[in-house]
Design a protein around this nucleic acid. Structure first.
Length: 504
RNA sequence: GGCCCACUAGCUCAAUCGGUAGAGCAGCUGACUCUUAAUCAGUUGGUUGAGGGUUCGAGUCCCCCGUGGGUCACCA
């Protein structure tokens, strides 16, 4: 247990003193009649005909002692409202009690009547004031003022580590952080509305999986004690969702958490929120149209526009998005035409000339992915679909009929990030079995990267799976885009942080 | 995992060449009946992320560790 600071000890003593004088500093009930916004609206509606009584509740965010009068601002979920305590109305005892026992950060309740101050601010003239929850630890100091219509924050609590570790304090003092998460919730609602409107069924599939699959990632491993069985946290929903197509559900989606045991970065968190949907009788071209329609309409619902600004760049999400083959995009950005280098060795040599240092043991598809992430991805600011990917990095996608080395797959890029990934799903059980075999062969040297073959998935597919298109979207990245945040940590409430060494 | 940067009061930040650790806000005491970063006067508060070293003397230089940020690598 951490020792309290002097400031905290001081406040804790106030709790004791309040109790000694018969006041409970943490009462179970309050009787708020208005939020701050409701109170202000009620006063504006009343047009000074009558007095408007109201009881508001919230956190004390500022106090201005003026001798025989005290101004303060309360903050609640709707915003802030000013309160005024006057000596002639409340008496010396109440005023002294406020001065001695009420601090910034305390939750209080204030009842009285609304009026407008000389400077024009709608304010509650307090008749009764009650402590609702005494704060022991002072909030990280921050003061704000409005200058020329701009909100200026002084001494803002902005150390990223402290903010992420103590997100509660971050949210309490930084309203713009609260807004990010409101927007995030609206994004997810908008996605649901969109898909529900198309007749998709939302489902939940296992997070604990005996056999993981559906993506290229290392899993987290856990263990079921009673069953004596290792389990993996899912790295994707894909294989479970597509089984549902076999079961006759034609349109299905899931929004949930994936877990990938890999490096963290400004666009990677070990757990992240993914949307996947699968649609029978659709192929990747149909999915592409749905993707651009969905993302742009979510943007419009949430931000009011299909044109947004991301880190200073105007980004226009209005469909249709440009479509470009992966081969063409790489050729434009790097000068390498991958079709000129049919083997991994030749391609690696060409990449070496361009200043890349590809690992010799990589296979060709991985090298192409390298080219994509190095030359192409950072340069795509406007939304763009890259299509037609190498078969050997797309084991669940259907090959193009005229080119067996290439599959019907696309990824959507915006603002230098991969946002979504989709393909015409492979539904030929023999082909799928073959792909699984190829995968386990080509990675047999690196135990760590090997993925187990999901026999049951093949069983399902042998019952017959309708042709379908599938789609995956990084919800956190979409949120970054629509809230203009430079790192994924800003759009995840509790991003992964290393355990901090405790001092004993 | 590599490299670079940061870590100083509750918060945000200073501290010259290695020479007494400082400011604003918060806190505390007082003045003030329309303030809103209120104002004014006074005042408390520090194991400079941890540990070790060099030195007469270390926030500052060296070593090591921790955490965070950035970047590169990794990510069938």
């Amino acid at each position: 247990m951490r020792e309290l600071t002097d400031l905290e000890k001081n406040r804790r003593n106030k709790v004791d003193q309040l109790r000694e004088s018969g006041i409970e500093p943490y009462p179970a009930r309050c009787d708020r009649t208005h939020t701050s916004a409701q109170a202000i609206a009620a006063f504006e509606r009343a047009v000074a005909v009558e007095t408007v009584p109201a009881t508001v509740a919230g956190r004390i965010r500022s106090i201005r002692l003026m001798g025989k009068v005290i101004f303060a601002h309360l903050e609640d979920g709707d915003g802030q409202i000013q309160i005024l305590l006057k000596l002639d109305l409340l008496g010396q005892n109440i005023l002294d009690q406020f001065k001695n026992f009420y601090d910034l950060g305390d939750f209080i309740q204030a009842g009285g009547v609304l009026f407008r101050t000389r400077s024009g601010e709608i304010t509650l003239q307090v008749e009764k004031i009650t402590m609702l929850a005494k704060a022991i630890t002072p909030l990280p100091a921050s003061k704000e003022t409005v200058e020329n219509g701009e909100r200026v924050v002084h001494s803002a609590f902005d150390n990223p580590e402290a903010r992420y570790r103590q997100r509660y304090a971050d949210l309490a003092v930084n309203p713009e952080v609260r807004n990010i998460f409101r927007t995030r919730a609206r994004i997810i609602s908008a996605i649901r509305d969109f898909l529900d409107g198309m007749g998709f069924l939302e489902v939940e599939t296992p997070i604990l999986q005996a056999i993981y699959g559906g993506a290229a990632a290392k899993p987290f491993v856990t263990h079921h004690h009673q069953l004596h069985q290792d389990l993996y946290l899912r790295i994707s929903f894909e294989l479970y969702l597509k089984r549902l197509l076999v079961g006759g559900i034609e349109r299905v989606y899931e929004i949930g958490r994936d877990f990938r045991n890999e490096g963290v970065s400004y666009k990677h968190n070990p757990e992240f929120t993914q949307l996947e949907f699968y649609m029978a009788y659709a192929d990747y071209r149909t999915i592409m149209e749905i993707a651009e329609t969905m993302i742009s309409s979510v943007a419009e619902t949430v931000t009011g526009s299909r044109q947004i600004t991301f880190r200073g760049h105007p980004v226009d999400l209005t469909p249709p998005w440009p479509r470009l083959t992966l081969r063409e995009a790489i050729r434009r950005e790097s000068g390498i035409d991958i079709d000129d280098y049919p083997t991994a060795e030749l391609l690696a040599a060409a990449m070496l000339e361009k200043g890349l240092a590809p690992k010799a043991e990589k296979h060709r598809g991985k090298l192409i992915e390298n080219l994509l992430s190095h030359f192409v991805e950072p340069n795509i600011i406007q939304p763009t679909f890259l299509m037609d990917y190498p078969r050997d990095i797309s084991p669940l996608a259907k090959s193009k009929t005229d080119d067996l080395r290439t599959v019907e797959r696309f990824e959507g890029f915006v603002a230098g990030m991969e946002l979504c990934n989709a393909f015409s799903e492979l539904n030929d059980p023999q082909d799928q079995e073959q792909r699984f075999l190829e995968m386990s062969r080509s990675f047999s040297e690196e135990e760590e990267d090997r993925h187990p073959t999901d026999e049951d998935y093949l069983n399902a597919m042998r019952y017959g799976m309708p042709p379908n298109g599938g789609f995956g979207l990084g919800v956190d990245r979409l949120t970054m885009l629509l809230t203009n945040q430079p790192t994924i940590r800003e759009v995840i409430l509790y991003p992964h942080l290393r355990l901090k060494e405790e001092e004993s």
